[in-house]
Amino acid sequence: MDVLRVEGASYRYGAVDALTEVGLAVGAGDCVALLGPNGAGKTTLVNLVTGLLAPATGTVEVCGGDPRRAATRRALGVVAQSAGFPRTFRVGELLRSAATRAGAPRGAGEQALASVGAADLAPRRAKDLSGGQQRRVQLAMALVGAPRVLVLDEPTNGLDVGSRHDFWALVAARRDEGVGVLVTTHLMEEAAAVAGHVVVLDRARVVVSGTPGELTAAMPHRTVSAVSSLAPADVAALVGAEAVTLEGGRVFVRTAEAERVVRRWLQGDATLTGLAVASATLEQAVAALTGDGSPASAHPTTPADAPLAGARS
């Protein structure tokens, strides 16, 4: 059953199309990642889904209801980009109030806080918490009403690797309990690790959707890398590849014929070590699909891009 459904939704800011006939669906226990460059329409779509905006055309439904209605939003938990906690409130007070607003029983706030491993934060002022701790508190507030749908808007922005890992593990646990999750993020390899489905927005439209594997498998190029005694230009001439770069002491060759490149490189450089072949990353696939040629998008796979553990791919 779909717990979140967007069908033919359009929205305009004045003369600017923010969304044009966008559709997506999130089932119970599924996680859908909404990807795309800045200005693609992700935030507008999140605003439609959370009831902040009404679509000009089309429909948005959360558990069959209109998210503009407060009663419908009882099925919704939201983690916004910015927490904006009041200056004078302690975490425990925020969670108790959130529980009341959600119609949850007494003690639900403390339980939600404990469920995200943040019970010890209850006496602390929310504004004094670190970024990772604030995200945990936000997630606890989103979960306190036992929502059917979680909407996470760039939830790991500004977090260190450890905090991101912990956050996604918590989200994956809720997903596995049957909560539908819609997440927007720029950290696409993290999205690939936690989301079973990816929707790519560009210029207000859905340009592609599928599983992360489908998106990356559709990319013809792979990256062959190794520590070589040859200069990048010599490697390019040897293996017959055009895109050869040197980074961190390793030579990277982007090619559609990885096997041929490996054979030639091994034959032509007897000192070759650390040979690795990597498929296109989700970030590279999305960049190719949206025409986003930013340097970050073009970088080959590195160990830091590896999917996080504890989340379903």
Binding site: G8, V22, L24, E214
Partner: peptide, 12 residues
């Protein structure tokens, strides 16, 4: 390789 794209009503 085939990939689903640009489906304005890409619903189940």
């Amino acid at each position: 390789a085939a990939m689903s794209t640009a489906s304005t009503t890409d619903l189940h």
